[in-house]
Design a protein around this nucleic acid. Structure first.
Lengths: 186, 186
DNA sequence: GCGTTAATGCAAGAGTTTTCGCGTTATAGT
DNA sequence: ACTATAACGCGAAAACTCTTGCATTAACGC
């Protein structure tokens, strides 16, 4: 018999909040379970039993964050949909929190192991594909999903990881570049 | 009076080799200074004194790896130069080692802190700019450095980080896309 | 409510990591 | 070759991380 509600839910929320808070002030490797325990008021033994390691805890935080991610737009024209989507990707990359979460994702890469995209990642790809399908049904010239990821999403992540996050309005430039590539092909 | 030569150089090489070797078999968080000390035959106190932390040690490994990075090509046509460069970026991303090193770079991102690109990164950008300048002097239509990074480099890193590294020959596709963007602008 | 027991708190202890003082080695300058 | 001392090795101690057994709390089904 599992008991996800009440106290357990409170503990989970407190620990997540403390972890995110500490993540703003320290780098990943400086964090420790005892630190999160201290900051959250939850006993360290509880954290070890529920999450095992600091890495496991961060995974759980990331999962929850991904889950609350907003749905994709369905505005009307492909360009507007893409603009809304690109802005939706670029905006959270502005906040300090998300590069940190991204970092946690990168950390999960294991040597020699085939990387399996997370469930939320796959779900997001499927939503994007549906957006493209809708546009194609309307008779618009559409890019492939791969092109969308390479031309719009990849630069956003690249900037966020390796220099400064791109301003949100700059993401429009990427969308127009994508549409140019598509148009030229026709 | 510093003493970089002789024994110190030997110690550095041994420790680096051991760290890289262990990095192939274990994930980042499993590594520890005592492990590297054991594997390298160097006393752990020495590692702590010279590098401080496991993270600092990996930084040093990355620095050395970047430093020995090959020079950029100067083949003749911009397209050939870009193809050679793209392949030079894509190839090491195939090896297991480099995603790990990349991971170490990402780890270095500190919360809230202005990210300052590493010296090798800046140097590399300068080399690229020179490549573009040479092509422009020859009268070719050239992309900006930002376009090169966004359209060619960013997708390569994106694939390597979030799914599977792109096959080297696929990088040609990215180069041609870049040149298409440039040509269309003219 | 009431009872069962999952989940947490607590504290001791086992295991690891990191530091430190001191003796030894061997590099770099003379 | 000789000297001064940077860099290293060593071992013990300090600090920290993680585990474990038992007591306590409170969620969920009745």
């Amino acid at each position: 018999m599992q008991r996800p509600g009440g106290r357990s839910a409170r503990v989970r929320a407190d620990v997540h909040a403390a972890a995110l808070d500490l993540l703003q002030k320290h780098q990943w490797e400086e964090l420790s379970v005892p630190m999160v325990a201290e900051a959250s008021g939850v006993h360290q033994a509880t954290i070890y039993r529920r999450w095992g390691t600091m890495s496991g805890l961060l995974n759980d935080v990331v999962s929850e964050w991904s889950a609350t991610d907003a749905a994709l737009p369905d505005i009307g024209s492909l360009r507007d949909d893409l603009l809304a989507y690109a802005a939706a990707v670029a905006k959270p990359l502005q906040e300090q929190m998300v590069p940190l979460i991204l970092r946690a994702v990168v950390m999960e890469i294991r040597p020699g192991e085939k990387r399996q995209p997370s469930a939320s990642f796959l779900e997001r790809e499927q939503q994007l594909q549906e957006m493209l399908d809708r546009a194609e049904a309307r008779g618009e010239a559409v890019p492939t999903l791969a092109e969308l990821l390479e031309i719009v999403v990849a630069p956003l992540y690249f900037h966020a990881l390796f220099s400064e996050p791109l301003p949100v309005k700059e993401s429009a430039r990427l969308v127009d570049r994508l549409l140019d590539v598509v148009a030229q092909r026709a």
